[in-house]
Design a protein around this nucleic acid. Structure first.
Length: 551
RNA sequence: GCGCCCGUAGCUCAACGGAUAGAGCAACCGGUUUCUACCCGGUCGGUUGGGGGUUCGAGUCCCUCCGGGCGCGCCA
């Protein structure tokens, strides 16, 4: 029995009590079931009685008594007793606990997937870097976390589209082009240009492969270099992201937005809602109608569109493509955008909740405790590529996802490339490899556990119970990670699951020793192993981290 | 000045408003002569930055102060 199933049972019990007038309450839509820290408090505990006390006008313990008595007759529940201020502590019988092993094995990759977000059509936009340089560490955090969020949302039943918005228009692109051209022709790179070493490499590449560009008249030459370098740089970003296992369904170009007239179209939509006005020769969006500090300019007095104009049109475009939720992942240096983005939604006649902005704090990186400075302009940058080269995709992804994004993060390159428990990705992966080995050995011994009768009631050891409970908790972890947009919960959970497995393995012999014959207990433990492995693989899959069969 | 985020063990960090605030690392002590020891067990370690409040119950919610990060363009 999973905690969700138990919660449903408790809710049902409360419903019966309410129907029979034993208790005058509204049946709560959600019943909270938790795994108590201390096993003395049972397998699970619920605070339902305490939560109902106020509306029922009865002391929590009295309500708890009623519910507990009802639960005692439920199949699978071995014991239900009132404790403390009104908790109900519940003990399952071992067969009911053990059934989740069967569920996990039989459901396979589907185990843990849910439907809490079914019907939602969600756009997740992240990274959206300028195509004027390699992706650096901040982008890398989003590459890992954004991708994991998308996977987790999908696991909760949402239809998810991941999207990368390419800022390929405007002054930065011109500076980029000018920088590459300067490098190609031996001129000093402009003060306001890009000075990274990669500019020189790009310039050399362009010259080698498109020497004819050098022959063009000045203006066309500049444009030629800009476009060529842009294509190459974007291609490089795409290639590195693919290597990093971060997939985007849609690459959306700011330039294309303008060329397809989507910007003007977006303005019309907003105008029809009455939030566009003209002042001082500029066109504005009245975002202050919806909580922004100040109104924002869409078209400057000189006729140029602002960056915000594209953002606004892009939002309208997303809505027209059918997304009912637009999630943006932004760096902390962009948190000033939150209010105006939400205001854009409201100006479009949408609920402000249609826009959800996740703010990620900065990532610092150290090597052996010493900070590695990041500066895109100065060229001493740690790029996504360099990080992966140094620590590998699995360690990089896992380390970046493992922490909530709203706190600043410091990663030490030495630590996350070591195979210590400072670097738990290996700990989790090792559990998977270890189980794989056991299952291989079982096959070698000719044990066909899958078709043998599985008696979950034989899993009565304390550590078997802990492991089963951990497995049973997985679907809820996925659901809450999706609801809270916090994939780090998956990682933390996997570490606990791996611990539970290692502890189980330490005390419970799975396979028969050479002088032993095969028993039902061996079979039951093999099911437990297979279930554990399935859940680890599913969880790592949500993080985009591999689940190796051997290490 | 205004706004957002953060402050938890020596370090890096967890903890749907729930019971005695937890892991890993570091330090120290143990465990494998048969399934992967990249593992397991134990010891040490805390006024959750300070102070108020809300309630059956606060690391978590509210107020305030202190400390740190980031942002406040007709820039992108």
């Amino acid at each position: 029995m999973t905690p969700e199933a138990l919660a449903a049972v408790i809710r049902e019990a409360i419903g019966h009590l309410a129907d029979s007038d034993a208790l005058q309450v509204d049946v709560p839509s959600e019943v909270h079931v938790e795994r108590p820290r201390s096993r003395d408090h049972g397998d699970y505990a619920t605070n339902a009685a305490m939560a109902l006390a106020k509306s029922a006008g009865l002391p929590p313990r009295a309500i708890a008594e009623l519910i507990a008595r009802a639960l005692q007759s439920v199949p699978g529940i071995a014991q239900a007793e009132v404790a403390g201020p009104g908790f109900i502590n519940i003990r399952l019988d071992s067969a009911a606990s053990g059934e989740v092993a069967r569920q996990a094995v039989e459901q396979g990759q589907a185990y843990g997937r849910g439907s809490t977000l079914a019907g939602r059509t969600i756009n997740v936009e992240f990274i959206s870097a300028n195509p004027t340089g390699p992706l650096h560490l901040g982008h890398t955090r989003w590459a890992a976390v954004g991708d994991a969020i998308a996977r987790v949302l999908a696991a909760a039943g949402a239809a998810v589209t991941t999207e990368f918005y390419v800022n390929d228009r405007g002054v930065q692109m011109d500076r980029f082009g000018a920088s590459v051209l300067a490098a190609a022709t031996g001129q000093p790179i402009p003060e306001d240009g890009y000075h990274g070493g990669y500019i020189v490499d790009l310039a050399a590449e362009v010259v080698a492969e498109e020497p004819q560009l050098l022959e063009l008249p000045a203006e066309e030459r500049l444009a030629g270099f800009r476009e060529s370098a842009y294509r190459r740089q974007l291609g490089q970003q795409q290639q590195v992201l693919a290597l990093f296992r971060t997939h985007f369904d849609v690459w959306s170009s700011e330039r294309a937005l303008h060329e397809s007239n989507a910007v003007e179209h977006g303005f019309e939509e907003l105008r029809s809602h009455g939030h566009v006005f003209t002042a001082d020769g500029a066109v504005w969006l009245r975002t202050t109608d919806f909580g922004d500090d100040k109104d924002r300019v869409l078209v400057k007095a000189d006729g140029e569109y602002t960056y915000f104009a594209s953002d606004t049109a892009y939002y309208v475009n997303k809505r027209e493509r059918g997304f009912d939720l637009c999630i943006y992942l932004l760096g902390a240096d962009h948190h000033g955008y939150v209010n105006r983005l939400r205001a854009v939604a409201a100006c479009n006649g949408d609920a402000m909740e249609t826009v959800e902005v996740l703010i990620g704090q900065m990532v610092k990186i150290t090597r052996g405790g010493q900070e590695v400075k990041l500066s895109k302009r100065a060229g001493t940058i740690v790029t996504l590529e360099e990080l992966v080269d140094e620590v590998g995709v699995d360690a990089a992804r896992y380390s970046l996802i493992r922490y909530p994004v709203d706190s600043p993060l410091t990663l030490d390159l030495e630590v996350i490339s070591q195979r210590t428990n400072d670097n738990p990705v290996f700990y989790v992966q090792y559990a998977h490899a270890r189980i794989s080995s056991v299952l291989r050995n079982a096959a070698d011994l000719g044990i066909d556990w899958r078709t043998a009768a599985f008696d979950p009631g034989l899993l009565t050891q304390e550590r078997e119970g802990e492991l089963l409970a951990s497995i049973a908790g997985y679907p809820r972890v996925v659901a809450s990670a999706a609801e809270l947009r916090e994939p780090h919960r998956i990682a933390r959970y996997l570490e606990e699951l791996a611990t539970a497995y290692h502890r189980f393995y330490d005390t419970c012999r799975v396979l028969p020793r050479s002088d032993e014959s095969l028993t039902q207990t061996h079979i039951a433990r093999l099911w437990l192993c297979a279930a554990s492995r399935q859940v680890i693989a599913n969880g790592l899959g949500l993080l985009g981290v591999s689940a190796p069969e051997r290490m």
